[in-house]
Simulated assay, not measured.
Amino acid sequence: MAEESNKTSFLSVDCPFAKLPDHLLIEIFVRVPIVDWGELSCVNKYWSNLFREECLWHAALIRCFPLAGQGKTWPGPIPRGMSKRRFAALYTSKCILALDDEISELVGHTYLFLKEQLEISTMPAPSGILHGTIIDQFIACGKSRDRAHELASLIWLAVIDNMDDNHQTFLLLKRLAFEGDVYLAYPYSRSYKVEWKIFERLFTDFGDCLNEADKYDLLGCAKQKFEPIPATWLGY
């Protein structure tokens, strides 16, 4: 009774949606384009609460990704999570990484894990540990080391590409550039393409933020890793 009272207090009695039970509201919501879900969840507190419920995300998962294996085991160190997390992983894999196959959910979860560790954590783990965790996840799910290395590099590149242009990203990229992975054996080291992407973003997107000391230090690191160095990195 309290729940119904709460519901009607946020929806006008003249509104037909106020009379619909939750399961019908959910069926309507999951048929609305995904880009509009954020606005839907802001209409009122009751709808906002529905978007926090497992039942809505379970319905969204079934409708939007009907082939997502519900009964597959999930080994490895990166958790699979509940329906909302699974939906986010599949949506990320499809829209950001352009994957839509049997490994799309695994790749999506790994992308979310790495992005959160790098951007959200106040003290992110060393990149070598994070990269090793990604490799271990793919190997635990039956992928070869070569395939695990290939997928991990794809995820690193996507995460670095999609970081916001802000001070936190600038500091993170500097740390990654200076950190290096020379002490890690293949396949637990980041690929050449990933290292290149880190320096490219620093010199092209954050070049104006670098002081003279950092710029010369980073150029020194870059010269040890890459040959030749692009002229744009030198400010030409």
Rank of each mutant, 00 (worst) to 15 (best):
E116G: 12
H109R: 13
F138H: 01
W156H: 13
F206C: 03
T73Y: 14
D136K: 05
R175W: 07
C64W: 01
W156N: 00
D165F: 15
P126K: 14
L67P: 02
Q117I: 12
A152G: 15
F138Q: 00
L56H: 10
D181C: 15
R80F: 02
L118T: 01
E212Y: 13
A68S: 13
I78H: 04
Y111Q: 00
P33T: 03
L24V: 04
L40F: 07
L234C: 10
H149A: 14
C55F: 08
G220I: 03
D208Q: 11
Y91T: 12
L24I: 06
L171Q: 14
T110A: 11
C95Q: 15
P75V: 10
D36K: 03
L118N: 01
D214V: 13
F87Y: 14
Y216D: 15
R190G: 10
W57T: 05
F226N: 11
F203A: 12
E200T: 08
S121A: 10
D161Q: 09
I139T: 09
Y188N: 03
Y111R: 02
E195A: 11
K223V: 15
G76S: 12
V194E: 10
T232C: 05
G142E: 03
L130V: 01
P21G: 02
L173G: 09
D165C: 08
R190L: 05
